[in-house]
Amino acid sequence: MYLKSLNLRSFRNYRECLVDFDAPKTILVGNNAQGKSNLLEAVELLATLKSHRAVRDRDLVCEGTAEGKIAATLERANGTVDLALTLRTQARRTVSLNSETLRRQLDFLGVLNAVQFSSLDLDLVRGSPEMRRNWVDSILTQLEPVYAHILQQYNQVLRQRNALLKAFRKESDSNNSTANTQNSSELALWDAQLVTTGSRVTRRRARVLTRLAPLAQTWHSSISGRSEVLELKYAPNISLEKDDPEAVQQAFLEKIQQRRIAEQHQGTTLVGPHRDEIEFTINQTPARVYGSQGQQRTLVLALKLAELKLIEEVVGEPPLLLLDDVLAELDLNRQNQLLDAIQDRFQTLITTTHLGSFDAQWLDSSQILCVEAGQIKR
Rank of each mutant, 00 (worst) to 15 (best):
Y234G: 08
I282Y: 04
F280D: 02
I368E: 06
A72M: 08
A66H: 13
L85P: 00
K255A: 07
Q296V: 07
E63H: 13
R93T: 10
R103N: 10
P319C: 13
T197R: 15
T26W: 11
F11K: 09
A84Q: 09
Q153W: 01
K304E: 01
V29C: 11
S174Q: 12
D243P: 04
A247W: 13
N180C: 13
C17R: 06
R104Y: 06
S51L: 05
D20E: 15
L151A: 13
Q257L: 11
K166W: 12
Q295A: 07
S292G: 02
P286T: 12
A77P: 00
E67R: 15
L3N: 09
L323W: 14
I368M: 09
I70C: 07
L321D: 05
A72W: 10
F168R: 01
L322S: 05
T86A: 09
D121V: 05
Q337C: 14
R15A: 13
V271P: 02
S239R: 14
E329R: 14
A42P: 00
I311Q: 13
N32I: 08
R297G: 01
L140E: 04
L124P: 00
V125R: 05
N7F: 14
L106P: 00
L83V: 07
T196E: 11
A213K: 09
V29M: 02
V55W: 12
I261F: 07
L165V: 08
L299P: 01
A47I: 06
E372Q: 08
E329C: 03
D276H: 09
E41G: 11
D20L: 14
L323N: 08
L323C: 07
A373Y: 06
P273N: 08
S224K: 03
H265T: 14
W135E: 03
E41F: 03
Q293I: 02
A216C: 10
Q266V: 01
L109Q: 03
Q293H: 12
S128V: 04
Q257H: 13
H265W: 08
Q296W: 11
S119L: 14
D340L: 15
A54F: 14
R207C: 02
A306G: 08
N176T: 03
K50R: 15
K25M: 11
A287W: 11
Y2D: 04
Q375H: 13
T352A: 12
V146N: 01
Q335D: 00
V208F: 04
S51R: 13
K25S: 12
A251P: 00
V289G: 03
L74G: 09
I350R: 01
T285E: 06
L189D: 00
Q367T: 08
R103M: 05
R58S: 14
S99V: 03
P214Y: 08
Q266F: 08
F358T: 11
R226N: 15
